[in-house]
Design a binder for these strands. Structure first.
Length: 277
DNA sequence: CATCAGGCGAGAC
DNA sequence: GTCTCGCCTGAT
């Protein structure tokens, strides 16, 4: 068990901000002082992590050693998000409000293949249904695992498993027209036409170029993968929410030059703020 | 019943 | 190069 106290770390907000579709709320209880305590489950990197959250205190169900070697990096704990928020132009009232509203959001370092498939599925789709699709994919094509604590979960299916899936079967996961995109992406990786290991080493521009080769991956999805898997925090995905906000709040353009290298992290505050309000 | 979800590819021009 | 249109599905 590892305890972390951090103002800028909320599992609830990370979960709701829709960057991680497999993070699930396991239970929600209230203690005698009326404080809400939430418990989350997260299958990632061949493990099943459980996190309890109460206020700004978090409890991780893993030994310190595992926390230091895996989760510290996964949750980007070396980064000071308070500093990042403090750098926001005080005159930018909208961005200041958005960051204050979603101050517990962090940009995770998630698995590359999982993000490619997840964000292909995310297009023209809502978060609830994306979760269902991903969970169904894992249940159907992933490998059933039992953690040391006895939690049952499914691994995210690799490219091979998805490439072998029959089209009708994949279609049965309710991916709709996106199922052929997923199938094509899996084939591309299996045939070695895209090398995921090499993709991880590329800079932002190089990674974008490579990701855009996938059938069903456009600028928006490629930017999400860059941000949520490769941690290119300058990547700035523009979806319907962001597009709307840019038009309404930034008619003269978003000040990218002021936030060079981390505009993507700020994008996540804006997205979450608009999504929830 | 129409519209919309964290878009994208294809085809027209 | 830029624009429009159709698309699976489920929630509202």
């Amino acid at each position: 068990m590892v305890t972390v106290e951090n103002r800028y770390f909320s599992m609830k907000q990370i979960s709701e901000s829709g960057q991680c579709f497999r993070l699930e709320l396991l239970e929600e209880t209230e203690d005698k002082d009326g404080r809400v305590k939430r418990k989350y489950g997260l299958p990632a990197f061949g493990r099943y992590l459980k996190v309890s959250e109460c206020g700004s205190r978090l409890y991780f169900s893993c030994p310190q050693e595992e926390f230091d070697s895996i989760w510290k990096d996964y949750f980007d704990l070396e980064e000071d998000y308070g500093k990042l928020i403090a750098s926001i132009d005080p005159a930018d009232v909208y961005l200041s409000r958005a960051a204050a509203f979603g101050s517990g959001i962090r940009i995770l370092r998630q698995d590359l293949w999982e993000m490619i498939v997840s964000f292909i599925i995310s297009q023209q789709n809502n978060i609830r249904r994306i979760r269902r699709c991903v969970s169904e994919l894992c249940r159907k094509y992933g490998v059933r695992q039992v953690s040391e604590e006895g939690d049952i979960y499914y691994s995210f299916p690799g490219p091979e498993a998805l490439a072998e899936a029959s089209p009708e079967d994949l279609y049965g996961c309710n991916l709709g027209y996106r199922s052929r995109y997923v199938k094509a992406a899996a084939g591309l990786v299996c045939r070695g036409e895209v090398d995921l290991a090499a993709l991880r080493l590329l800079d932002y521009e190089g990674a974008m170029k490579e990701l855009l080769r996938f059938y069903g991956v456009g600028t928006k999805v490629a930017n999400c993968v860059c941000l949520f898997a490769l941690h290119h925090t300058g990547a700035f995905p523009v979806d319907t929410h962001i597009s709307k906000v840019l038009g309404q709040q930034y008619p003269d353009g978003f000040p990218f030059e002021r936030y060079t290298g981390y505009a993507g992290s700020l994008q996540q505050y804006i997205f979450y703020y608009d999504l929830m309000n």
